[in-house]
Design a protein around this nucleic acid. Sequence first.
DNA 1: AATAATATATAAGATGTTTATATAATGTAA
DNA 2: TTACATTATATAAACATCTTATATATTATT
Lengths: 114, 114
Amino acid sequence: MLQTDLIKGSIRTIVLKLLKENGRMYGYEITRKVEELTSGKIRLTYGALYPVLHKLESEGVLVTEAENFNNRIRIYYSLTEKGHSLVREKVMELLEFIESLQSIVSPQTGPSYA
Amino acid sequence: MLQTDLIKGSIRTIVLKLLKENGRMYGYEITRKVEELTSGKIRLTYGALYPVLHKLESEGVLVTEAENFNNRIRIYYSLTEKGHSLVREKVMELLEFIESLQSIVSPQTGPSYA
DNA sequence: AATAATATATAAGATGTTTATATAATGTAA
DNA sequence: TTACATTATATAAACATCTTATATATTATT
């Protein structure tokens, strides 16, 4: 597992992107999906995930629906219209950030006339 | 400029990598180099940079040399042996992290038999 | 003379994350 | 049938990290 503090700051974007791709999801499902997509390299903790979800809700970025499943309450989160445009922004920002990181840590991949 | 909270957690690795590539550097020079490499997209703030440098020094990862330049003191930072092996670790970790992020935000780039 | 750029640094406040903890139902293996 | 793993949501305390504001001072440029 990675689980370094690199994850700091990207949880919001990850959550938003997953909700965009998968429609509505519940918290546990989000953590599973992240593990699946990253081959277990990234694991969101609930102490980090739920505060993010609650904040996004209070900002009007997503809405919740509580449903009963097997005598348990399951809370589904889905993007609002505002959420959808935020995803686009945030994902672009993340891609730019990744590019920037790469230009620091990776050697130039320009033409090599070798 | 990006300057989102995505940078959180990657400053250490960025600093370490730059010191490895450039030998010794001083604080201001580090911020310049990051701006240069990222076309101004990432800007380290001093409030973030200096605490990181001081912490790395206290951990024995880097050492300082104060030199006089134009009537001003300039403090050069360079990696110790311990620092050199930490860079390798941290950069690998960052590359893995980038890969993980990409598998979340980017579409699969597998063979497309189209 | 004023401003921008160079240069290091700290404190206060804000934010975000980990770790620990609580609760509870269902499925599974011994 | 007991114990454990998995499913499921959630909060509080502690910790780490970052931004913003601030201080200081020299040199170069307009």
